[in-house]
């Protein structure tokens, strides 16, 4: 994941780019077989370890998903961690410091 967390007016604007196919389950392969859905279902974020964001996503979120949120009161040096989980059970967590 690429995470950019920038302090702005006492808050931190966090922008995240995740790496994921986000396969819809609607497409067919060259043999005409439906390609099964494979997408991130859940995203969470923490601020210095404290949960701040919880989201559920469907397959209509674009490939290599983007997320932006603003954490109140986060200061430079604070840690923002983002975790995703997909419908196959894979998960990934990355962390960035507020700049």
């Amino acid at each position: 994941m690429r995470i950019r967390a920038q302090s702005q007016g006492g808050n931190a604007v966090v922008r995240v780019l995740m790496s994921h196919e986000m396969e819809t389950g609607q497409r067919k392969d060259s043999a005409g077989k439906t390609i099964p859905a494979w997408h991130i279902t859940n995203v969470t974020a923490t601020h210095n370890g404290k949960p701040v964001l919880n989201a559920e996503w469907g397959p209509a979120v674009a490939k290599n998903p983007f997320l932006q949120f603003t954490v109140k009161g986060a200061k430079a040096g604070d840690k923002i961690a983002v975790t995703w989980k997909d419908n196959k059970g894979d998960t990934r967590t990355d962390e960035a410091a507020v700049s």
Binding site: N11, A60, A62, K63, P65, F69, T70
Partner: peptide, 14 residues
């Protein structure tokens, strides 16, 4: 939406 974040969220969709 929690008290810890602004009620303002963005993503990109198909």
């Amino acid at each position: 939406v929690s008290d810890a974040i602004e009620p303002n969220l963005a993503t990109r969709a198909k």
